[in-house]
Design a protein around this nucleic acid. Sequence first.
DNA 1: AATGAATGAGACTTCATTCAT
DNA 2: GATGAATGAAGTCTCATTCAT
Lengths: 201, 201, 201, 201
Amino acid sequence: MTTTKKAAPPSERRAHLVRLAADLFAEQGFRATTVRQIADAAGILSGSLYHHFDSKESIGDEILRGFLDDVLGGYREAVTGVDDPRAAIERMVRFSTAALSRHRAALTMLQNDWAYFSAQKRFAYLRTAMREIEQTWLDQLERGKQTGQFRADLDARLAYRLLRDILWIPTSWKQARGRSWTTDEIVDGLLRLLFDGIVAR
Amino acid sequence: MTTTKKAAPPSERRAHLVRLAADLFAEQGFRATTVRQIADAAGILSGSLYHHFDSKESIGDEILRGFLDDVLGGYREAVTGVDDPRAAIERMVRFSTAALSRHRAALTMLQNDWAYFSAQKRFAYLRTAMREIEQTWLDQLERGKQTGQFRADLDARLAYRLLRDILWIPTSWKQARGRSWTTDEIVDGLLRLLFDGIVAR
Amino acid sequence: MTTTKKAAPPSERRAHLVRLAADLFAEQGFRATTVRQIADAAGILSGSLYHHFDSKESIGDEILRGFLDDVLGGYREAVTGVDDPRAAIERMVRFSTAALSRHRAALTMLQNDWAYFSAQKRFAYLRTAMREIEQTWLDQLERGKQTGQFRADLDARLAYRLLRDILWIPTSWKQARGRSWTTDEIVDGLLRLLFDGIVAR
Amino acid sequence: MTTTKKAAPPSERRAHLVRLAADLFAEQGFRATTVRQIADAAGILSGSLYHHFDSKESIGDEILRGFLDDVLGGYREAVTGVDDPRAAIERMVRFSTAALSRHRAALTMLQNDWAYFSAQKRFAYLRTAMREIEQTWLDQLERGKQTGQFRADLDARLAYRLLRDILWIPTSWKQARGRSWTTDEIVDGLLRLLFDGIVAR
DNA sequence: AATGAATGAGACTTCATTCAT
DNA sequence: GATGAATGAAGTCTCATTCAT
């Protein structure tokens, strides 16, 4: 009846439910959140959720896809036409941080339940996407070494792994008690740490 | 060395079971691991575990306490009689990394199931211990700022939070597929990144 | 008449299940009855009970509250506007007997599992209610002593304890093999025994 | 090796264990008491109990037999050579009360777990013994009616059932908080209630 | 006599999911 | 779109009992 009506008929109601679920996933993790909690948040019974989704995993799928589409698109844009690798990395960092704060649930799911998702065929795209993300970072780091902007002895893959996980960190703090820093402060602190370390010069 | 606990009469068998459980917790998380899996790993029936522990949480408790006792002791030793804050931090970093690799399960539990544990009275000591750990870091970072070794504009608390989580990262990689770096390489990479950044000079 | 409870949305199905459970509790005791037996009696799986109740204890709670509300209400009514203590006691006896036969499960639970229930915070109201019941009896017994209708040397508290337990007796016979007496016969026998003893005059 | 050595080799240790178990049964009931609790009370492990008894029921059996042997013997003696039925009943009441306080566990078991025991062949003697006890009471009550000492309209069987259960009451109070009355006071109160009622003359 | 370890049956409970209405 | 009821698999835990040492 409605427009698309395939695996994911995009309705307002449906999108709203995904958002509610995402909030819960972000705070508790995917597995630790029950469909009943999601339904409660929506003010309906848990069984009624199945009019909108055919499984809990479908909701997870939707959230993860949304995140990866966003990140992948953003990274492609971040490096396109930017010659300076340091500038490109700074753009990637800033974009990552923004994207992660838009998709807190996806981050929690990737951190807490990676083993659960990546073991399923249905989520094979997760590995593919992560690989592209990795490659984008490696490209910029290697270019920086070639231009002499970055240390020649830098292990690009090691740096990437460290950086990726480091970028994930601040997002997982959100909504914590202290709440002392703005996103910008954190990113700046991170970039400063990243490029210059903590030692005074 | 170790104090004899009443609630947990130490026995070889028991210690062995804790180790088996810890391996599973490290890989899957505490909640995601079932007592049946632990029992299977030990070659016994799940109910038989309760001859040794009065609950799954007791096993978790034992693992977490072991970790925190280790870390707290190590940190105290790392800073005692060390005047140079940079040296103290380097000692703390090296100790942390070693301790974390000795207690991978505890790390996974703290990362994945913090909400679950910290909500329980029984695990109130988690918060206490984390507070002491934080204070130890803050002390050294502040001292470094006073001596002029660290940047004067360094936000100590922000740096601590970033550093703590960053130190946790490499441990969670262990046993992953790539397995490209030794612990020492990772620590060195981390320290290098930490003190000097990635930019060439 | 009945107040709508939040924790226990009333439904026909639910009420029916409580009744089934009550029958089993009456015959076997609360602890000795398994949720599986209750579910079997209802023709469903044991897990399905948890769609209606959040625990076995919730069922027990519902039964006990229903009983105490009934008794307390009845006692208040029994003594209101009745000047003659002997008449009041007779009304209380008759009401008790009727109430008990309406709530056989509650009686069994109080007799067999008092220790279990009264040890839990959730069932604190049990003690409160029993205290009010006791006070109602003591009031009437003392008044009877003052009016000279009852023996001056009567130990009111001792008499209450004996009477209360005595009143509980006949209900626990019901559904036994012999089944020789009607409720009225038992009450009359009891009242006769109570007021006049067994000795001929 | 030892003297009898059949189903129940009477050793001091064994008797001691039975006593410990009886205390627990008296307070918690037979089913509600675990073998582990018994073992704990004895300072041994639960498995070690099986050197003395071949099952938990064996302990119950021993306790119940001891009680019934005592009561049956006492009743026979109470009525032998006593012509006056009122005197005989008073002797039976006094003996019952004394016996019950000596065998509190048996009483609790009979009250709480009668259904459990009486359903087993092994405990068939319970019914036999109860029948003899009942007959002894009926004999005295009927004789009292014939001599004109008791009311002619007294329903002997009803009176027996009431009396038996009434006699059980005070024992189940023991060890309660109030602890206001001595055994003698209770028996006297009971006899007074029984023979004369509460009404003043 | 007792320990230490284990069994096996069964208890209460959780939860994603299904489906008739 | 939603309800109300149920399923079925799985999870944590309990407990009487057994047995080699």
